[in-house]
Computed example of a mutant assay.
Amino acid sequence: MATGATLLISAILALSCFHAIASDPSPLQDFCAVDKMSKVRVNGFPCKDAKDVVAEDFFFSGLQLAGNTTNKQGSAVTPVNVAQIAGLNTLGISLARIDYAPYGLNPLHTHPRATEILIVLEGSLYVGFVTSNPDNKLFTKVLNKGDVFVFPEGLVHFQFNYGTSKAVALAGLSSQNPGVITVANAVFGSKPSISDDILAKAFQVDMNTIDHIQAQF
């Protein structure tokens, strides 16, 4: 337990380094807690009146709880970004807990607005990312408890629990609102659907294959 607590504290402290290199704009005031009642949106969220800000605007509880991994992918992400903590607005950081069932996968995805740094708290993970065109080079690594890996901003990446026991990781992200694009969902589960002929030509398969894959989403 002591080792796990030390790792968790170290990971959270590491997040403080993100502010200096955050992709989000730097704040021009002490804080800008989100005014959830405002309908104004520019490039972020409007500020609540400072006199109405309370300690709860900077607080989140529940990260000690495991996510529900009884799904097709066998993984669950518990985000802690500006949607959960109003006081993260303009601060350029967020984090997430990721739980993996045995052989669970956090599928191929990107964060369009953030670099991610991941630390394994329990179990082992096989992780990797792919560079942009034209090289599309795959970088992979097996991580064990206490190991850290970085996924550069915007690049497609994944984590896979190849073991027979559960795994848990904590991820820090260099944006208050990093976003996530799950590749398969975006390509095969868009609404409305991308036309079969476009996908068939893109993936060099027949349209029946595309129909079968789309049906899974």
Rank of each mutant, 00 (worst) to 15 (best):
V77W: 10
V142R: 11
P25D: 01
D57A: 00
T69Q: 02
S195R: 14
A200K: 00
G74N: 05
T115A: 11
L15Q: 12
E122L: 08
L15A: 06
I198Y: 11
S94P: 13
N81G: 14
I181Q: 06
A184Q: 09
D135K: 15
F203I: 12
S38T: 08
V156H: 01
Q214P: 07
E122P: 10
D211M: 08
A96N: 06
F139V: 15
N43V: 09
P192Y: 04
D135Q: 13
I198C: 04
S16M: 01
R113P: 07
E116K: 02
K137L: 13
G128S: 06
D206W: 01
N136G: 10
D24Q: 10
S132D: 15
V130R: 08
G4D: 08
R41Y: 10
P79N: 08
G172I: 15
S94W: 10
L88W: 10
I12F: 14
T115Q: 11
V82A: 02
I194S: 01
C47H: 08
A96M: 06
S23G: 13
A101F: 05
Q216S: 12
N106Y: 11
N89M: 06
K137T: 14
C47N: 07
I117S: 08
A5N: 14
H19P: 00
L105C: 01
P107R: 05
F217T: 13
G92N: 09
G123D: 03
S16Y: 09
S174D: 11
Y103R: 14
G67D: 04
A215W: 10
T78V: 15
N144S: 09
M1G: 11
F203M: 03
L28Y: 04
V150W: 01
Y162E: 03
T3V: 14
K39S: 13
S132R: 13
V77K: 12
A33L: 08
T78G: 02
F160E: 00
T140G: 00
F60C: 07
L108A: 09
T90W: 02
Q84T: 09
T209Q: 10
